[in-house]
Design a binder for these strands. Structure first.
Lengths: 189, 189
DNA sequence: AAAATAATAGACAAATTTGTCTATTTATAA
DNA sequence: TTATAAATAGACAAATTTGTCTATTATTTT
């Protein structure tokens, strides 16, 4: 029998699912409470506001994303293969989530102009992804005796980002495969 | 003296500005009416619903985007320069809009799963941009005797899309300049 | 000028939003 | 068992949402 998780965990799970599938602004706190089967007072005791729940959602998504990425790249030995594994990971991810896109980019579109902790999370997440991919690309270029590592670092990162958004738009994996093929050619030649 | 435009035009202008700056879901119809100085009945007579106003917003944005792009590329003679002009146009655009990003990607993040005319506009817009850039890239590759035109078409498009989203995230032009430099190198060498 | 059309203000409805508060029940710990 | 803490249901508030409707005022058109 499935062990019933505590209210806090159920809230995070349910809110995360709804925020991702329906959007943050389109998801009311009441729906989260109903589906999580948690009382309203419990939500405000644990999180204090909807915005805080959104922040926890992003923090959790960040950890899970990089855990998945680490696991995918760890399987490979050579740096170029690690880079390509990032694209494979993205492709698997997009298929599994039915092409809902990047949780961080999605959330950023819903945020108002003003500064917020959520925006900070998004910026930090992408900065880390940029450096993650950049490091792998630079290493791969060294191994391949490709002198363009410094330029290709951001090129590959931007291809990755482009593949994410375009894949969501067309609900297909071709952008990811096209980006992956480009990267293979750019570094490997 | 500024000629006062008619209610329909004022609604489109005001709604467009607010949808872009605050987001579609975060902008209430009442705020649009107040700022446009238009009566509520006029809105529902002309457009019938908020969603229709959103659709007109996207249609108008599409026309304006490609008008700007056409104007930017028309100044250049050679195809490679036209491709680079697309990135220059994007950079100018992002600076002018204070890095609010792509109206279509932003809207897509706010849309529910269900199909809608707005989603169709977004998909059609991006498909046309892909073919617009792709055609220029293929032509540029022919002129440069670069045999990789077929592959580079989507590579450049994905770099363009990546530059758009990343530029919004970091509120800076470096992603656009990095993408532009990559494109110059990829096609020109 | 008279008739038809367009736009106005604003009340109103019905639903939804986030958040607070009370009172009751359930679990946990001493 | 008893005391403490956690979670519950649900009423309530105050604001906001989209959309309808009425009645009045401007603006065109004939």
């Amino acid at each position: 029998m499935a062990k019933k998780s505590n209210p806090e965990e159920r809230l995070i799970q349910t809110a995360g699912r709804l925020f991702y599938h329906q959007g943050y602004n389109s998801t009311g706190i009441n729906q989260v409470l109903e589906e999580a089967k948690v009382a309203k007072a419990s939500l405000y005791k644990h999180f204090g506001s909807k915005e805080k729940l959104g922040l926890v959602y992003l923090q959790k998504a960040r950890v899970e994303w990089f855990n998945g990425l680490d696991k995918a790249t760890a399987k490979e030995e050579k740096a170029l293969q690690k880079v390509l594994a990032c694209f494979d990971f993205l492709e698997k991810n997009m298929k599994e989530t039915n092409y809902l896109g990047c949780k961080f980019i999605n959330m950023l579109s819903e945020l108002a102009e003003a500064e917020s902790e959520m925006r900070e999370q998004i910026i930090a997440h992408k900065a880390r992804l940029r450096s993650y991919i950049g490091d792998l690309v630079r290493e791969a270029c060294i191994q391949k005796h490709n002198p363009k590592g410094e330029v290709l670092a951001d090129t590959v990162y931007l291809l990755f980002e482009g593949a994410i958004v375009e894949s969501k738009i067309v609900k297909d994996t071709w952008p990811i495969e096209a980006a992956r093929n480009s990267v293979k050619f750019l570094i490997g030649s």
